[in-house]
Design a protein around this nucleic acid. Structure first.
Length: 571
RNA sequence: UGGGGCGUCGCCAAGCGGUAAGGCACCGGAUUUUGAUUCCGGCAUACCCAGGUUCGAAUCCUGGCGCCCCAGCCA
């Protein structure tokens, strides 16, 4: 496709789905239109895996906006199972989608809006002898289905006359039978090597309240009898789904053929996996239900709600989904890759600030007792146009406890007795004395002296210091609670061993709450969800629910890359 | 021992018969008032294996091997 051997612009990220769509367009199919859809079931929250599908489907609609027939992406809720679905999930899904940056305009659909049409189609298949009502119990149906290697057997009810099927099906619909008493099945082939074609169930009896249709129905279509026709009804041209539905495609085609309606082209791709995490809605639900996390939006969850609360930007998630690509190979993406996309976005946008997570008091012995100076610190060192902020400096400060070592190892170039370092944007200071608690022996205070000549952080004599520390003025600092998050699981693939419950691999250290942290005063009015880089620490975001004027709460979104930690870790 | 799909660098991933893109990770080195960022350089004689076709194959053919999915009245 790419017409440009002469271009030195890097090849636009592409993938096999675009190639197929290009071919369809070139062949003049679908009147030149590209219509995709994102079809969630409202039975849980969206996660990063859904984001891949969302970016793909909505991205395609955007990429092909100039196709001769136009392009768009529908949002459709596949709400065919009332016992698992809830309005709460619909609301959350829509909110997450908008937050991620996608807009479906007028095109919001519900499979439940097609129930009447689906029912009519079922009747049509009954009348043409393509569907029948089966009285077998669920256990019997399973037994009759055969196995992977043995063909199934026909149900004794398979050859009921059409009129009888119609009567029974209408009575199912009228609520004459209890749940599970009978089903409507497609009459295809009980010996098919594709199990999906062994007379699949089309309708089941479920006396359940549906979140949209209420108690109007007591029979509900199965997903397999709904999905393809819903796509067809909406004129979807490219129905993009995950690999496990590849085996269902012949069934969708069968229904579409029998009904003689529009065939979307189904294309399957590999779903996203990320190491040190679980991705299935069932497992996420279990984490929430059993209290292993604080809810669907717990910042440790890879749900969109969780990522948002953690401080992820929508742009970083979109960039991630672009870069991982789309293929049919089952793969597992490194968590570090996601973090990298995040850092990249945050580094260029996040304003800088100083925060001391584990404060150690420092007294500048030669600094005048009641003096306070204000330094101008850049909001973003690479983007001076963003301006500066005022940072107060005084005789008593806090620095990070881990930035001082009494007996520093070889390559440690932070503060140590007798050693001089720079306090960012302020002065050079030298450590003269270490004060400890006589009881515990714990270091309680450092006595240092500063060099007035080094004001602003450089010395007129040109002498260099190896380390620069972040700090905060004790009298001016704000107290804050800071939540440190780490990966939720300690093993790469928590779900690998089906014999071991995946919750056994939960990381007991995935959340550390730090209280009494000291942050610079410019953060007083930090707005909920605003993100900062705390210099030398990482990116943090104001918790959207727990933070307020009375209590500042920051969530650590991700640490900075830390090559010192690597050096330190080496034996 | 049924059917469907997939196998290119540690992890993603281009490539579609003309002699292995890119990103992440990693390893060097430069700049740096964040051990951050940025910048330069290195990183598959090799594409699951074995045969074959061809002047030429990761790309075509044959046969193996490995991995994933399917036996819900879930989606």
């Amino acid at each position: 496709m790419g017409s440009s051997n002469d271009s030195n612009i890097p090849a636009a990220p592409s993938h096999f789905i675009r190639t197929l769509i290009d071919q369809d367009l070139a062949a003049g199919k679908n009147s030149g239109a590209v219509i995709t859809r994102f079809p969630p079931e409202p039975n849980g929250y969206l996660h990063i895996g859904h984001a891949k599908s969302i970016c793909l489907n909505f991205g395609l609609a955007r990429d092909y906006a100039h196709a001769p027939g136009g392009a768009r992406c529908h949002l459709r809720f596949d709400d065919t199972n009332p016992v698992k679905e809830e309005q709460e999930y619909i609301d959350a899904i829509k909110e997450n989608l908008r937050w991620l940056g996608f807009d479906w305009g007028e095109h919001e659909y519900y499979a439940s809006d097609y129930f009447d049409q689906l029912y009519a189609w079922a009747l049509q298949l009954i009348d043409t002898g393509k569907a029948y009502v089966d009285d077998l119990s669920p256990e019997e149906i399973r037994a009759y289905r055969g196995t992977l290697t043995e063909p199934g057997r026909n149900s004794p009810y398979r050859d009921r006359p059409a009129a009888e099927n119609r009567d029974l099906f209408e009575r199912m619909k009228n609520g004459e039978f209890p749940d599970g008493f009978r089903v409507l099945r497609a009459k295809i082939d009980m010996a098919s090597p594709n199990l999906n074609l062994r007379d699949p169930v089309m309708y089941r009896i479920l006396h359940a309240e549906h979140h949209r249709t209420g108690s109007r129905w007591c029979i509900y279509p199965m997903y397999d009898f709904t999905h393809g026709q819903s796509d067809s009804l909406e004129g979807i041209t490219h129905s993009i789904c995950t690999l496990e539905f590849e085996d269902h495609r012949p069934l969708y085609d069968w229904f579409l053929d029998q009904l003689d309606i529009h065939h979307p082209r189904q294309i399957e791709f590999a779903r996203l996996n990320i190491n040190y995490a679980v991705m299935s809605k069932r497992k996420l639900l279990e984490l929430v239900r059993d209290g292993h996390v604080d809810g669907w939006d717990d910042p440790r969850m890879l749900t969109l709600a969780g990522l948002r609360r953690r401080g992820f930007t929508p742009a970083s998630i979109r960039a991630f989904c672009e870069r991982i690509g789309v293929s049919k190979k089952s793969s597992c993406v490194d968590m570090g890759f996601l973090e990298n996309c995040l850092r990249e976005d945050l580094d260029s946008h996040a304003p800088r600030a100083m925060a001391v997570l584990d404060p150690l008091k420092v007294v500048i012995t030669n600094y005048p007792k009641d003096q306070v100076e204000e330094f101008d610190a850049p909001i973003h060192p690479q983007r001076p146009e963003l301006g500066t902020r005022k940072v107060p400096f005084s005789r008593e400060l806090f620095i990070e406890r881990e930035d001082f070592m009494e007996e520093p190892p070889n390559k440690f170039f932070r503060l140590a007795p007798g050693r001089e370092v720079r306090l960012r944007c302020a002065y050079y200071v030298r450590c003269d004395e270490v004060i400890r608690d006589p009881q515990s022996g714990e270091i309680t205070e450092l006595r240092c002296c500063y060099d007035p000549e080094s004001r602003g952080g450089s010395s007129p004599d040109g002498r260099k210091v190896k380390g620069t520390l972040h700090w905060v003025s004790a009298a001016h600092a704000l107290d804050a609670e800071i939540r440190l998050y780490d990966r939720l699981f300690v093993v790469e693939n928590p779900a690998a061993d089906k014999a071991v419950d995946f919750t056994r691999h939960l990381n007991p250290q995935s959340l550390k709450v730090l209280r009494g942290c000291k942050v610079e005063p410019s953060l007083v009015a930090a707005a909920p969800e605003s993100r900062y880089q705390f210099e030398r620490q990482g990116y943090f975001c104001v918790d959207r629910y727990d933070s307020g004027s009375a209590r500042l709460v920051f969530n650590r979104t991700v640490t900075l890359r830390d090559s010192w930690a690597k050096v330190e870790a080496k034996p």
